[in-house]
């Protein structure tokens, strides 16, 4: 009986020893994935409800995430939820509520920017095409790919929709 236990123990030990998947400083597995992008973006208010109207617009080439919020939404105490591609992680980590008023963009709206309360592609593209208008204080987060070698910094912008 005793012998059997020892044999089993040794077997388990050898299996463990063979696994050579490396882990990073957070204890997360480093994989071979090279994808590195933000897939979605949301902000949660103190009432645990999302402040988003419509969908967030994420441009993975320009590395910009835009969120549209209702007119008058207070931005000083929000919890960001940033969805990433598989195995990726975010830097800095989100550990508390944040002041996103620093990410708020002032922009002149044009005809066709809004359709039934939601932003149109025209508006999304106009914002992305004009980086000089981005507030310098806007929140920035870096996405780190599964292989931990590729890093991409995203800028997060908030646009308040006109009064509805």
């Amino acid at each position: 009986m005793k012998n059997k236990i020892i044999v089993l123990f040794l077997f388990v030990l050898s299996v463990t020893a063979c696994s050579d998947f490396p882990v990073d400083e957070d204890g997360l597995l480093i994989t071979t994935r090279t994808e590195c992008y933000v897939s979605n973006f949301d902000l949660i208010d103190t009432d645990l409800q999302s402040v988003k109207v419509g969908n967030a617009y994420v441009d993975t080439t320009a590395q910009i995430a835009i969120m549209y919020v209702k007119f008058g939404t207070p931005l000083i105490n929000l919890w960001p939820q940033i969805s990433l591609c598989e195995d990726a992680k975010l830097d800095p980590k989100i550990v508390e509520r944040m002041d996103f008023s620093v990410s708020k963009m002032n922009i002149e709206f044009m005809e066709g920017d809004w359709k039934s309360g939601n932003a149109t592609t025209q508006l999304n593209e106009r914002i992305v095409d004009n980086p000089s208008a981005f507030p310098s204080t806007a929140k920035r987060f870096t996405v780190i790919a599964g292989n931990r070698e590729i890093k991409k910094e995203y800028i997060f912008l908030i646009v308040e929709r006109p009064l509805q």
Binding site: G72, R161, L163, Q164
Partner: peptide, 17 residues
């Protein structure tokens, strides 16, 4: 208006809202 509807205000509320 949908974005305001039922609101609470104080003297520090931004006038535009």
């Amino acid at each position: 208006k949908e974005d305001l509807s039922h609101a609470f205000y104080t003297p520090s509320s931004p006038k535009e809202y």
